[in-house]
Amino acid sequence: MKKLGLMKGSEGMETARLVLRRFRPEDAPALAAYRSAPEVSRYQSWQAPVSTEEAERLVASFSATDPRYPGWFQYAVELRDAPGLIGDVGVCRTEDGRQAELGFTFGPAFQGRGYATEAVARVVEFLLVEEGLHRVSANCDGRNVRSASLLERVGFRREGHLVQSTWMKGEWTDDILFGLLASQYRAARDGYGR
C-alpha cells in the first residue's frame, strides 16, 4: 500500500484507493442511508433508522471537532476515483494524548472489499507511527465476527472478552476488547521489511 501521509491544508489522509477527510454537509444523506441499514446498525449503539435531519446534525458535529484534540473525531471515507461517502472511521484520543480508541462503520455496498481494513490500517499507522501514540484500542460486539477479524488483520490482539456486559437494543451483549501497542506495530511492520 502506498503511503501518502496527511493531505496538505486539511485534516485528512489517503491510501491507494481511499481518501479519509473531514465530514462535509453533503455527506448527510449517505450517512443517514448506511447508518439506517439494519445490517450496519445491528451491532452499533444508535437506533435505526437515522433521519436526514439527524445525519445533518451528526455531520455538523463531526466537522466541528479537531482530529488532534482529546475526544472523538470522525473521518469521512470516500473512494479516490469516485467521491462520495462510503463509511467513517472514528478516533477518540485520551486527555493525555498518548492513547486512542477507534471504531468504524461502512455502508453495506462497500463491505467485503477491503476498504474498511485499508482505512483502519491507515488511521492506525497515522496514530502509532506519525503521531507517536503509545497504544490504540478498539472493542466490538462479540457477535460481530467480521469487525473482530478486521481488527486482527490490522494487528490488534484480543485483550479481553466481557460476557453480557452491555445492555443494547433489548438484550445483553458481549464485548470483545482489542489493543495494539506502538512497539508491537513497529516490530510487525519491520518484520515485513517495510
Rank of each mutant, 00 (worst) to 15 (best):
A60V: 01
A182Y: 01
L20C: 07
K3N: 12
V163Q: 13
A60W: 03
V163T: 11
L180A: 09
E39D: 14
D175K: 07
P38Q: 05
L79E: 15
A30P: 05
E131A: 12
E53C: 00
A187W: 06
T117S: 15
F126W: 15
G97C: 08
V77E: 10
S41N: 06
G191F: 06
E152D: 04
A116E: 14
S36R: 05
E56Y: 01
G97R: 07
F23C: 00
F104H: 10
V120A: 15
G160M: 03
D174W: 04
R113H: 14
D190T: 11
R158I: 09
F110N: 12
L79T: 04
D96K: 08
A100Y: 07
P38M: 04
Q99Y: 01
L79N: 06
I176N: 02
W172V: 00
W167T: 01
H161I: 03
Y75H: 07
L31N: 01
C140E: 03
E130K: 09
G5T: 09
D174A: 04
G5Y: 07
T105L: 05
M1A: 14
Q164C: 01
S41E: 06
R146T: 08
A30D: 11
G12H: 07
R98A: 08
N144F: 05
G179H: 04
V136P: 10
S61F: 08
W46V: 03
Y115D: 05
A55M: 01
G71F: 10
G142E: 06
D96I: 05
L6C: 09
R80F: 09
K169I: 02
R98V: 04
V50L: 03
H134N: 11
V129E: 14
D174K: 04
A116P: 09
L177A: 13
L20H: 08
A188T: 10
P83A: 00
S183D: 13
R157A: 12
E125Y: 11
Q99R: 15
L180D: 07
D174P: 05
A33R: 15
T166E: 15
E171N: 02
F106E: 13
R42M: 06
D96W: 04
H134G: 02
A55T: 00
L181T: 02
G90D: 11
G87C: 07
Q111E: 15
A100H: 08
